[in-house]
Design a protein around this nucleic acid. Sequence first.
RNA 1: GCCGGGAUGGCGGAAUUGGCAGACGCACACGACUCAAAAUCGUGCGGAGUAAUCCAUGGGAGUUCGAUUCUCCCUCCCGGCACCA
Length: 804
Amino acid sequence: MQSYEHKEIEKKWQEAWERENIYKTPLQSKEKKKYYVLAEFTYPSGNLHVGHWYAFTGPDIYARYMRMKGYNVFYPNGYDAFGLPAENAAIERGLNPRIWTRGNIETMQKQFNTLGASFDSSSMLETCDPKYYKWTQWMFLKFKERGFAYQANTPVNWCPSCKTVLANEQVHQGHCDRCDNIVEQRAMKQWMMAITKYADKLYDDLNNLQWPESIKEAQRNWIGRTYGSRISFSISSSTKNENNTIDIFTTRADTLFGVTYIVLAPEHPYITKLIESNALENIIEVREYISATQKKSNLDRTSNKEKTGVQLKGIIAINPANGGEMSVWIADYVLADYGTGAVMAVPAHDERDFEFAKKYNLEIKNVISYINSSLDKNTAMIHDGVLVNSGEFSGMSSNEARTKITKHVNGKMTKMYRMRDWVLSRQRYWGTPIPIIHCSKCGAVSVPEKDLPVVLPDLDDFMPREDGKSPLSKATDWVNVMCPICGEKAERETDTMDTFIDSSWYFLRFLDPNNAETFSDKNIMEKWMPVDFYFGGAEHTTMHLLYSRFWHKVLFDIGLVGDNEPYLRRINRGLILGSDGNKMSKSKGNVIDPDEVVSKLGADTVRMYLAFMGPYGEVGNYPWDPNGVVGVHRFLERVWRTHNILSKENIPSTTKLLHKTIGHVERSITELKYNTAISGLMIFMNHIEKEKSITHDVYKTFLQLLAPFAPHITEELWRMFGETTSIHLSQWPVVDETLLHDDEVTIAVQVNGKVRGQIVVGVRELEKNVVDKAFNDVKVANFLEGKKVLKQIYVPGKIINFVV
RNA sequence: GCCGGGAUGGCGGAAUUGGCAGACGCACACGACUCAAAAUCGUGCGGAGUAAUCCAUGGGAGUUCGAUUCUCCCUCCCGGCACCA
């Protein structure tokens, strides 16, 4: 018979599957239980690389397995087509981003076809398609109606290289997530999403999700919920008759008696008021400090931990606990946008306050004593203990005192979040236009629903600008419109949306990508949501994964979707590294081109190899081993050759191993241990080669087990046996439990916990007989000679241990 | 600093969750086939030792008849957060 011609076989079946439409999901069908497998959709960056193969074969194996298990599986694919990198790449090449993106999608679509993935191709969508972003805009307006989308003048992250603002999530250690440049702070009026309103829901509902603990924990860290107290300090001026209060947030209300000064962030709004009312004696000094702070980037501000500050001379604060008078300062170690932008300083029990107090010679008052002497002397100061010098609260534990003291000074127990609202405006061309018209009379007016979508105009010059204005502002024909309310001259909003908004709801549109009446059919969503299994990359943990949960929760509260969480199970895959163990990069010259390997060894081989490298669900990073791929290819060739040794006669040991293998492969797939599933298949194959015989039925069952991993070769062989429907639509084999039963079992014999021999015994053999047999084993006998057995432990089917 | 996850042969990784550590694959060595090479097949392959045997799952203690698995301490690596009050 002919040899394994992967090229021919793969092309043939890819075309046939498409023609026969075998992966089209009957979304309306009620016969089978639904299962929605989602892989993060693709950014059309140019070419499919190994990472794409890895990202899509993992979920594909799962989808194929679930389909064979009898589920109605939906596994869609599309393109996250708007965005900065595409725009940057287009600029570099002097192309319009639309053309650049179009070309990439076409190339990548062709490459996707070679992967042998079981996508439902009718679900295809692109976020840059007006048919899609019409609904992105529609949702934005719904969010705005309810106050979740709002405009605010706030300090924002500005990337001087990408020339746009960024959300906090898109800044890492002070650097732009896209281009790695240092991010500046600018005060700009921007559209924001009130994600902090959902902080508690986002935090608490994590408990209901089947997600790896590491992902949940990363989101909790990002949300950063802290419990504490909000306490008011009254402020008075020594010269003016000026009285006011400043609210602070603290987790350590128990240390209130130890507060010796108050610090405000330089941006605190009260300072402007003080300057205006001329209440300060050192206005010039204060102004200088504020402008010096403004010049610093956040990175400067946080990386230089040397404390600086200026006293607000002319005002004092009163400690509400004991009436003591204290100085008030501004210092840039206090952040304007966390808590209330003001802190009470307890230098005796806070390292930062301590440092500041030392530098400016401020009082340090100890109010906590530590019973736990095991604490390090240097860090003990910040721990809980027992109150001293705290009036009636002296002697109380920190924990108890926190609530009691807060109550005593009319404070409030409250919580704070590290997460900030999501800045969604982008001063870039290639994104969904924000559907707003600015009217000098009516303000920011929503574009009426009938006028949606606001189509992104074609521009010749879409270069980003230094001045913080969007390139769209140059499209004057497009910008100048009538106000939908008053009919006067007005201007369109020229910023576009963060692409993370586009991707916050795409999985809903997959279900109904061509609907012109609504963003997705309600009945279909009801049946298919939430997503059962979401596969993606770790980089989205505190970005897309958080944003889309927020988005979905709002849709749920508005009544547009029926679930408050979009994804039940989630997994972050690892990274495929170059052969040298480094991240693949052109500069290192260690990039593996999947197309090359596929043409040489075939898609089935590449898929199998990727699955075989290690467990899929853990963020393991696996180096690509060119020899390893060849090893997997060898295996497939052996599978192919096996059709030459078909026989009529069944070997009992083969049947038994087959059923063991069914169970093993099944368990491994559900646990995403594709590597052990494949090793099980290899073990079975090794057995067949040794026996040099296999029956049709056993071979076919084996092919079914292999089918999710190597869909083409298995289909070819399956049909060779006269099957007329696809192996991928066949029923997953059922384990015959009665065959798994062993009559005899090999158990280890231990002496003092060390293995000294092996014996074969009947499964239900009496302990007495097993002991006899063990004693008669020559090697064991050697170790028992002249010794007295004190105790014996017999675990049936596993082990017998003699303690001597 | 806080939180989460890790560490097993030359390499990727197995180990039914407390019961024979190193499955499966790669690499390597030897052998068969070949004029030769490749491919293929066979054998071996954690370390030491001729062997019996001993030592080995990052290091140290502990629990246990028995620990890669559980507990405590330490080292290192990866990831998240971080002047967040």
